[in-house]
Design a binder for these strands. Structure first.
Lengths: 180, 180
DNA sequence: GTCGACATGTAAATTGTTACATGATTTA
DNA sequence: TAAATCATGTAACAATTTACATGTCGAC
């Protein structure tokens, strides 16, 4: 049996959108362009080839509305499975350090795809790794802040502040998830 | 006269590091790999070709330590000019919305490259655009939060919290820059 | 004397950007 | 009816990832 293949972030972002409802390529582009949905490229040269590839791999299905004759893409069971596996992948330290937007995207698509227990586990792991990461950053700062040029120091402080905000967010999210 | 060409973020990140001191390709890789320096790829397949290209364009110069026979890259006057122009580019709303890490990178390299007045102007523009962006996010949230699924809502809240932290940071950075 | 870190590179494949091209439909 | 938006795509190019390949140097 073939392993579930790895897809690019853009592909997962598309699958995540299609999870809720079928969309045209154009609608997907507009969502990436207009909304706060990440930094995923909305250029036709990225979206249409990505959709074709997803279709080839049978992760999405192209359907045509018989009335309007317009095309939509619908996520397939295989696509749903692939999306779910990506969302449930154990979080690694490396991701907390350098791939925060991917983790947030995974969280954003969890809704009806996994059970509460899995969501809680995700957030608790996220929180714990974030605390560890923050401690590393603070330790580095305490040791090196004096040696850094002012702008380097301030940029570093942004990193700390930003991670603190994310930690605070994760605690609140955990509360919200638990109280349903 | 040729315009200063656009470079990829990775190229600017390299130039910014070389601004302080000559470094070997390997040292650059390790800095990207080990430190909190963004999410720039540290793979040899990215760094070495990038350095070659920078050298071809005369933005960096390859020098050899006569004692150890080791190679280093040094930023050239042309490279410095290019870096400075990138840093001084007027900030656009689009960047605040989707390219925060690029803006932070530009800030991190400002140090001795531009004068205080320019730094202050950068931060004030940044702050103003951020306030505007935050107002847009909040307005959207107020209108749509009820219609969003829980995870979408929470992910959106992360965006708001994260931008608030950045705004707070910018105010503090402004203070620090002014008091020198 | 071998293991890990230092050090530099290439090749193939993938991914994404930029620019172009075209046409339908809606709205002012 | 002109302009804007909807809608889909391709081609050339640039950038990056992944995997491979090779060799040095210091420490244990």
């Amino acid at each position: 049996m073939k392993n579930t293949q790895k897809l690019s972030l853009l592909n997962y972002a598309i699958l995540g959108l299609l999870k809720n409802e079928p969309l045209s390529g154009y609608r997907i582009r507009k969502i990436f362009e207009d909304t706060a949905m990440g930094n995923y490229s909305s250029s036709p040269g990225a979206i249409y080839p990505a959709l074709s590839k997803l279709e080839q791999n049978e992760l999405v299905e192209k359907i045509t509305d018989p009335k309007t004759n317009k095309q939509f893409f619908k996520i397939s069971p295989k696509g749903l499975k692939n999306l779910k596996e990506w969302i449930l992948k154990p979080i690694e330290m490396n991701e907390v350090e350098k791939k925060m937007n991917e983790l947030l995207l995974r969280f954003a698509f969890m809704d009806d795809l996994i059970i509460e227990q899995q969501k809680v586990y995700f957030l608790e792991t996220f929180r714990d790794l974030l605390v560890e990461h923050l401690n590393n950053l603070k330790a580095y700062y305490a040791k090196e802040a004096n040696n850094l040029p002012l702008h380097g120091k301030l940029a570093f402080e942004h990193g700390i502040g930003s991670n603190k905000a994310t930690l605070k967010w994760s605690l609140n999210a955990l509360k919200e998830i638990i109280k349903n």
